[in-house]
Design a protein around this nucleic acid. Structure first.
Lengths: 217, 217
DNA sequence: CGCGAGGAGTTACAACTTCTAACGAACGCA
DNA sequence: TGCGTTCGTTAGAAGTTGTAACTCCTCGCG
């Protein structure tokens, strides 16, 4: 909502229509999932005829790519907003969970089954690294002296993903476990694999989190 | 391959054609993913015309449901085959990983983004419980006296998913963590979220597994 | 202020998809 | 040797994505 006054009226109009298309796309995804996203349906809802949308997006793939980018951006912003207030890992975990529960389809757009031909552009790996950086910073502040393990040593030797963040090996390991373990619980919960199992997914999430921050889970 | 000699020649033929359809479906899924599965393409490959397949499957959804069921069955069989030889949790973990790596799309068919309208039939939840039972048995044999935690107590009170398996609370907790943590690593690896990060996913998997079986990861 | 260029939206169409309906032919059981 | 079930076919409806060609409006420049 910042650089909307680009230059020419045409560009402003174009940006506005693109945003409107994306909004309708999100509504459609939120109700029926990404696989059910239909350009025709969006056009019909906007009171415009099918091929008109091709002025704004080269095709379904480009629209989805844009939505994935926006989803990453939204998650990175949510995490960063909490991180700048000095949130500890536990707080970040709940930011992540709240963000995921707010729109499961959006979470799956990022972390779900990959789209067959799609390959993430560099911009997205950049956003992904932003999230990682906030995670590493929070973990460094929370517990800088994690005892190193053999795998932590391996991470210290292969830290491309950490950019130039000065987190020690043990913290790298913690941040990675934070990501994979919480994703494990979240994705199974959102996919409905816990329904009918009886226990409370929120408590499982909390237990895994407690295990990560030191308390026994 | 057991009860193929059902009764009438027609039934045998029917079962054979259904199997052939599913085999082509698997090949198609393995190369392009489940979302790209096309009945028409299968028909063309079989040298038969489109609507002919509808004699064998009510529609795309029924075919996919059947494939999901087969995938579950395959995983349960793989786990069970290892379990009956007395495999410990670590061995089961590698069975799981090998099974997933052998055909990532098959793994995502089970644990990936849920299909919009699809709801798992009871048969599948049954197979899911078979897997859980083997897991619980392996964990019980490996480490029967896990110290209980608050969440383990919660699990002991909500053990619908464990059937009537006599695993103690601590083991329930371990088996659940086994599932969610390894899925966290596996799904991110298979979805390609580790590519370009530098470290070795196999080592991460091993590290998480080591954490579960007691050794420090 | 007026006019030309370019962008927006339109319809028409091609090539797909799933899936239904109606028909002929082949197969197996009695 | 029939006769009925089931198979596979073609035709077609209702979708989808995406291209091509055409009209019309609007913006910006002289």
């Amino acid at each position: 909502m910042a650089k909307s006054d680009a230059a020419t009226p045409r560009e402003r109009y174009r940006a506005q229509v693109r945003a409107e298309i994306k909004q309708h796309a999100w509504e459609q995804i939120a109700t029926a999932g990404a696989s059910a996203l239909s350009l025709n349906a969006i056009a019909k809802r906007m009171g415009v005829s099918g091929p008109a949308l091709y002025r704004y997006f080269a095709g379904r793939d480009e629209l989805i790519t844009e939505l994935i980018r926006d989803a990453y951006r939204s998650l990175a912003d949510a995490v960063h907003a909490a991180a700048v207030t000095g949130a500890d890992p536990a707080a970040l975990a709940h930011v992540l969970r709240d963000w995921a529960l707010a729109d499961p389809h959006r979470y799956f757009l990022i972390y779900g089954t990959p789209v067959p031909g799609y390959h993430a552009p560099d911009e997205i790996t950049g956003i992904s690294q932003e999230i990682m950086a906030d995670l590493l910073t929070a973990w460094t502040a929370f517990e800088p002296d994690v005892p190193a393990s053999p795998f932590a040593a391996h991470l210290a030797d292969h830290r491309d993903w950490a950019g130039d963040h000065p987190a020690p090996p043990g913290v790298l390991r913690r941040a990675l476990a934070f990501w994979t373990r919480l994703h494990g619980v979240l994705s199974l919960e959102l996919a409905g694999h816990f329904t009918g199992m009886g226990f409370d997914p929120a408590l499982l999430f909390r237990a895994e989190l407690d295990g990560l921050v030191g308390r026994e889970g």
